[in-house]
């Protein structure tokens, strides 16, 4: 962690929500600057050493998506979109505009804090490490799997995995985007013929999720492809 106090910009036209987030993040030791719309946000960026932006979408004057595009023209800081629109298509749109994460309203305080922390850690600490090309490491977003050390770090923090969990994760992370059936996973990881293994695999998948996902109920990385199998989501950008 950096010794300097990190400043976060919260942009929301609803003042109460802005204040609530300020309180939440202040408790975590962050300095919070608020803005009521996109234009104010752009102004605030020039006046404060902002390290992360929490951005609402539906706002007067300049909406969140346009603001994201404008900020991205010259700035690389993490942007988390906060929106009441929760459809997959909305999320994809926001992320493709250059946002780093997407939180749907109404959100849980813990989740918001976790996502903010995750983004800051990646930006502050992994920013350089991510660029290091190392064959013994598989990096996917917040996750980094060290094949030699057989260890996993999430947002730079070590996470303890059981050998089985590690092998499942390794298999999936080596082939991001590929869907594996439970039987296939079982045959490869357990090295035994598979029979009625859906429950076994699902239990491990859920345990891994608890360790790597911010909200295990809405996983970003380890996903179930219903009726087919399981897969590791490809890195977004």
């Amino acid at each position: 962690m950096s010794e300097n106090i990190i400043t976060i910009l919260v942009v929301d036209d609803d003042k109460e929500i802005g204040e609530a987030i300020r309180t939440l993040l202040s408790k975590e030791g962050y300095n919070v600057v608020t803005a009521a719309d996109g234009m104010e946000a752009l102004d605030a960026l020039t006046q404060h050493p902002i390290r992360l932006i929490l951005l609402d979408v539906m706002m007067p004057r300049l909406d969140g998506l346009s603001a994201t595009m404008k900020i991205r023209e010259k700035n690389n800081i993490p942007i988390i979109i906060l929106s009441a629109k929760g459809e997959d298509t909305d999320k994809v749109l926001g992320l493709s505009m250059g946002a780093d994460d997407y939180i749907t309203k109404p959100f849980h305080a813990q989740e918001l804090v976790a996502r903010v922390k995750s983004q800051i850690r990646r930006y502050m600490q992994l920013g350089d490490m991510g660029t290091v090309k190392n064959k013994s490491r598989i990096v996917n977003g917040r996750l980094m799997l060290d094949i030699e050390a057989k260890s996993l770090t999430v947002d730079g923090e070590d996470v303890k995995l059981t050998p089985t969990e590690y092998r499942i994760l390794e298999l999936l992370m080596e082939n991001p985007g590929t869907v594996f059936s439970a039987e296939k996973i079982y045959e490869i990881v357990w090295n035994e013929p598979s029979y009625a293994v859906e429950n076994t695999v699902m239990v491990h998948v859920r345990r891994i999720r608890e360790k790597i996902e911010i909200n295990p109920r809405e996983p970003e990385y380890l996903k179930v492809v219903w009726g087919i199998g399981y897969k590791m989501e490809r890195e977004r950008h």
């Binding site: 609803d14 109460e16 929500i17 609530a20 009441a84 309203k105 109404p106 849980h108």
Partner: peptide, 10 residues
Amino acid sequence: KTPLTSIITY
């Protein structure tokens, strides 16, 4: 959802 967000957060 908007007021609900405030309620839940507060």
